[in-house]
Amino acid sequence: MADAMTLKRQAARPASRARLELLALLPAVLLMVGFFIYPLIEIVRLSFTDPVFGWGNYEWFFSRSANISVSIRTFWTAALVTVICLLVSYPYAYVMSTASPRIRLVLLVVVLTPLWTSLMVRTLAWIVLLQDTGIINDFLEIIGVGRIPLIRTDVGVVIGMTQLLVPFMVLPIYSVMVKVDPRLTTAAISLGARPSTAFWRIYVPLTKSGVFAGMLTVFVLGLGFYIIPALLGSPRNTMISALIQQQVGSMLQWGRGSAIGVILLLATLLSLMIFARFARGMRLVGLGGVR
């Protein structure tokens, strides 16, 4: 029979196992607390204390119409990019999910190229393509439309951002689409539905979780874009990230830059929470690491 000693020993074993697991987490926790959490806390602190204690930096932010219009433009751009990404990615992912393995691999490699090439490389490519003497403008002149400014405009920013973010939309949609049983739409058609009805009533709802995951990722990443707006956009029509850079990097206004940063962070978290409510119970896939 179990005596008190053996019972105690049983209780001790799982505990030591747990300690080992916490030990494995320790280096990562130290790194994240020291060089991720602490810097973010520093930003919050600076936003309230630099140059003087109080809400001054936030009052400044909301009192300038220029700041408000930058914020609205940032949201509008991120939303527009999200919609364009969806329109582009849905048919792409659909063809990928129905293609032969060979075509599928080609399409996968193609859609992943933006992930495997440096952000700077991609941005440079768009500068070359979109510049006033670039190939797109040459083409527009040949077909008689005439040269239009693409670089240093919002059009350039949206084209560049979309190309960069398409993989984050295609991958989650694709991963859901391959799991949809193709017999379901066939079954709907056999039950009397028109193919378009079967598509909208059966197929689209079944792929909703992938769409949500993709939209969430693209929108949230889109909010924080810095390099592409800085290099492809107009200096007068910046986005929030560039505003932060201006305040901190050029004007050494740490408090103001930090306050904008806090607002951007809150907006990001709020978007996440709103999407999470819509996508409750869905497994969100495909978050990756490109800003």
Binding site: T6, Q10, R13
Partner: peptide
């Protein structure tokens, strides 16, 4: 898995502390 109570003996030996 670990027992909550009771004992397991194999060949007469208690197994509680044997991984």
């Amino acid at each position: 898995a670990d027992l909550n109570s009771g004992a397991i003996l194999i060949g007469g030996q208690p197994m509680q502390s044997v991984p």
